[in-house]
Amino acid sequence: MIKLRDIHKAYKTEFTSLQVLKGIDLDIQEGEFASIMGSSGSGKSTLLNILGILDEYDSGEYHLAGQLMKDLSEKQAAYYRNQFIGFVFQSFNLLNFKTAVENVSLPLYYRKVDRKLRHEKAMHYLEMVGLKDWAGHLPTQLSGGQQQRVAIARSMVTEPKVLLADEPTGALDTKTSHEVMGLFQKINEQGKTVLIVTHEQDIAKVTERIIEIQDGVILTPQQV
């Protein structure tokens, strides 16, 4: 599903060049449930941005679902993001002036799906995360855990090939964190590839495979 070959990435300013990724090789099969672990500054967020086609890389090759993701135009990048990838963020990133169901259906709007079908699908995924009765609420009327579940429903609504989560439990308490992780587990059991970036050991332990990253290289590409 995901194939990275010798990915390099540096952040350049006028005077300095900060090498963040120093040759990443990584394979993730379809249906895997993996986590990327590392301390801050290790390059894990940069790696996730590259995987999510939000950022470009300097050299190497990135294949997603058999297609090379390189030198894409903004429009192509938007298309692949919409088709292949579902994002879950630490701070949920819901639109505050839209209700839960409107938030969930937004990616389908950009896919030009008919309004009625959009609503149906959004309701279906809200039901999956157990928030069907909260569909008409605004994000500010929901708890953190509920907001994150709405965000997960939003990431699932396009039926993406890969679910990418960036510190999805970072803003949640322990109990809610475990509920959210349980949800990811359930999604994975339905056959979806799930990749979680975290720095918390017990969160990473829930996943089937831990990829440790330090100073821009992968330490132990091992099966757990």
């Binding site: 903004e74 429009k75 938007a78 919409n82 639109l95 937004l106 396009t158």
Partner: peptide, 16 residues
């Protein structure tokens, strides 16, 4: 800016 970033992340093209 943040809202536009979110929209882009979930698949809005610059044209939209």
């Amino acid at each position: 800016t943040k809202e536009i970033g979110i929209r882009k992340a979930i698949g809005a093209t610059p044209g939209m």
